[in-house]
Lab assay of single mutants.
Amino acid sequence: NQASVVANQLIPINTALTLVMMRSEVVTPVGIPAEDIPRLVGMQVNRAVPLGTTLMPDMVKGYA
């Protein structure tokens, strides 16, 4: 099963992502693939992302 990117903490709206904010986990539904974590660093979320939430492509500005 493919691992997805999951929020390791509450990520406030418009926050630029850092490695410490994300972890990989096998979840359903599948979100952004864990191998894209390096690409996500520095990108901003367009909404608040609660701890444990799977990051979906539409949550990250410029990802989709």
Score class of each variant (00 low, 15 high):
Ala64Gly: 13
Ile13His: 09
Ala3Asp: 14
Gly52Ser: 14
Asn1Glu: 15
Thr28Phe: 03
Ala34Gly: 10
Pro50Met: 11
Leu10Arg: 05
Ser4Gly: 15
Val41Arg: 05
Glu25Thr: 04
Val27Gly: 03
Val60His: 01
Met22His: 00
Arg39Pro: 03
Ser24Val: 10
Ile32Arg: 00
Arg39Glu: 03
Val5Lys: 00
Pro50Arg: 10
Thr15Glu: 05
Asp58Gln: 07
Leu10Ser: 03
Ala3Arg: 02
Met22Gly: 00
Val49Ile: 14
Leu19Gly: 07
Met43Gln: 15
Val5Leu: 05
Val60Ile: 13
Val45Asp: 01
Val27Thr: 10
Asn46Gln: 13
Thr18Ile: 10
Gly31Ser: 03
Asn1Asp: 15
Asn1Gln: 15
Ala34Trp: 08
Ile13Lys: 03
Ile13Ser: 08
Glu35Trp: 02
Leu51Glu: 13
Pro50Thr: 15
Asn14Tyr: 06
Ala7Leu: 09
Gln44Ile: 11
Val5Gly: 05
Gly52Val: 01
Ile11Lys: 00
Gly62Met: 09
Asp36Val: 07
Pro29His: 11
Val60Ser: 01
Arg47Ile: 10
Glu25His: 06
Leu17Val: 06
Ser24Phe: 05
Val30Thr: 14
Leu17Ser: 00
Val6Ile: 13
Met59Cys: 04
Leu17His: 00
Gly52Gln: 09
Gly52Trp: 08
Pro38Ile: 06
Pro29Cys: 14
Leu55Tyr: 01
Val27Ile: 04
Arg47Ala: 14
Val5Glu: 00
Arg47Trp: 07
Ile11Arg: 00
Ala3Met: 13
Glu35Phe: 07
Ala48Gly: 09
Val60Thr: 02
Thr28Leu: 03
Gly42Met: 12
Gly42Ala: 11
Asp36Pro: 00
Ile11Gly: 00
Arg47Asn: 08
Pro38Cys: 15
Val60Arg: 01
Val41Thr: 07
Gln9Cys: 06
Gly31Ala: 10
Val20Thr: 12
Leu51Asn: 05
Val60Asn: 01
Lys61Trp: 06
Asn46Gly: 09
Glu35Ala: 06
Pro29Arg: 02
Val41Trp: 04
Pro29Gln: 13
Pro38Arg: 05
Ala16Glu: 04
Ile37Val: 11
Leu10Tyr: 05
Val41Met: 06
Gly62Arg: 06
Lys61Arg: 09
Glu35Leu: 06
Ile37His: 04
Ala48His: 12
Ser4Arg: 02
Thr15Phe: 04
Asn8Gly: 13
Val49Asn: 01
Val26Glu: 15
Met56Glu: 08
Ile13Phe: 09
Ala34Met: 09
Ile13Ala: 05
Pro57Thr: 14
Met43Asn: 15
Ala16Pro: 11
Gly31Ile: 02
Ala34Val: 05
Met56Cys: 15
Gly52Asp: 11
Ala16Asn: 07
Leu19Trp: 04
Arg23Phe: 09
Gln2Gly: 15
Ile11Thr: 02
Pro57Glu: 05
Arg23Pro: 01
Gln44Tyr: 10
Leu19Glu: 07
Val26Ile: 14
Asn46Cys: 15
Val30Ser: 11
Asn1Ala: 15
Val30Trp: 03
Ile13Gly: 04
Thr54Ile: 10
Ala7Asn: 03
Val41Gly: 10
Ile37Glu: 05
Pro57Asn: 11
Val26Pro: 13
Met56Trp: 13
Ala3Leu: 09
Asn46Ile: 13
Leu55Trp: 00
Asp36His: 06
Met59Ala: 12
